[in-house]
Design a protein around this nucleic acid. Sequence first.
DNA 1: ACAACATATTCCTAATAAAGTATATGTTTA
DNA 2: TAAACATATACTTTATTAGGAATATGTTGT
Lengths: 122, 122
Amino acid sequence: MKLVQIYRCLCDETRLRILYLLTKGPLCVCHFQDILTLPQVAVSKHLAYLRANGLVTAQRHGKWMIYQLPEKAPPELDLQLRCLQDCAQTNPIFREDLKRLKKIGCECEWVEEAVGGKSCNK
Amino acid sequence: MKLVQIYRCLCDETRLRILYLLTKGPLCVCHFQDILTLPQVAVSKHLAYLRANGLVTAQRHGKWMIYQLPEKAPPELDLQLRCLQDCAQTNPIFREDLKRLKKIGCECEWVEEAVGGKSCNK
DNA sequence: ACAACATATTCCTAATAAAGTATATGTTTA
DNA sequence: TAAACATATACTTTATTAGGAATATGTTGT
């Protein structure tokens, strides 16, 4: 069942944090590592899980893999993402993540340049 | 994290079916058994899981345990329940369950009598 | 008090998922 | 081509979950 698949993806805190960050725009694996402060393998595996279930898409840009939410997400997913953004407002974990995301965003125009495949701001 | 807890409950098909049925009104264990055609122990354990996580409440009425959704569900849950009802409309599994629920509902006024603790219509 | 019934819990086993280590793949740059 | 970098995958171990069998608890009716 499609719905169960989505919920399976959502029932892990790390994956929720990843998805929430992606509602703000595309990101590469190394940024997730920095923001979530988790080892590369953990991030990579959760992203693979989300990707395998169609909750995110990925594109290679040079050395970097850029992950993003699907352009036209199915309504069930769309609803969850909006729910996530609501909940994130009052949840310290998500708020901290957002803070770190913004810090990175200020240091470069990663998100804007992502499509052009320029570079990662590490 | 609260949200993860909810999603953990939702990422099992049987529990989704249970929750969907409960959006139509309170039910006792034996009705779940009949509608879902699952063994008593399976139903009972899933209900216990949902209850432990606060997604359902239970009251004893004579021999029967009546499960229902909490009167004032937190907004995160409320949203999911509405999502569930949406998805259920096009999903054959849920539709079959609903059909069986209605069949039972026609044979007695269980739902209405539940609060009064009359009896189960077995 | 006992039998019948409805439900819950315990115990065991099998399946699934999470986390870590090591290694492999693909890309860029020197 | 080799080194450095970013990411993915394989493998192993551990933890969590689901399912079934048996049993326990609580309730009703005799």
